[in-house]
Amino acid sequence: MIRATQFCIAMATLSALVGAAPAPSVSIVVSAPRPSILAGEPLFLTLTLKNMSTEKLLLRSDPDSFARVSVAPNGERTVWTAPPPEGDTGTFFKEVAPGEQETIKMVATETSRLTLPGQYRMTVEYVPLRASGVVDFNVQSFDEGALRARADAIHEAAVTLHDAEGGLNETALSTIEPEVARPFLCDVLKRKPDAVTTARKLEELADSDSIGCLIQVLPNSQGLQREVIIGALRTTMGRVQDDDLREKIGRALSGQR
């Protein structure tokens, strides 16, 4: 086992903060830009983490550092925790001075599975420091037409907004049920050259339409998106049972590197 001194210091600081202070070193304010969502639509969150300590803190800025619990009108709880890291992963940390704050935006992906209409309360916890905040939101009854319109708006935002905001909307779209979201996912892939999340979602769906979209976009794709689409098609070719579809994928890939 090899350790580097500098790294030890960094991690020791984080560990100490997790375990030592009885009160959290950060405060969290949670808000929802759209606090009323349709059943099937995910909730966007804005979190403001403020360093309440007297030391600089390194705070994670990715959604996987947070756990969420939503309590439905009937008391039912929906819990979301980050899956354990697999394969090769990376996490950004940001230095936050005492008294300073950091804003993190995320999509509560699990909320698109909430079906019971009514008022919900979500508690969001920053797992490394056990600090939490609360936000109330409302889920409206399922309305496919309205959800489709909302998915359309999210997909447009995914395509047109800048990097981070576009990425958030891409994530949000990928959580909406495929029957509604699929055409919009395909349009995002066509119009957003760095739409990795969307390509992965289509790979995950692996139905005829989704694969057809990957095949359709492939010839005009470039760079990393092209690599991701090729990787997705190769993976799906090993999974799909439909011979015609496999042949279609094969033809598409045969023309590529």
Binding site: T91, L224, R234
Partner: peptide, 27 residues
Amino acid sequence: TFPNPTVIPPNSSTRNGSSALLVDRHS
């Protein structure tokens, strides 16, 4: 199966250049 290619972080909303530190994990 490793997603190929694997893009880290997977979503552009969390790739912040003004962060001070990137911790890379290979499991």
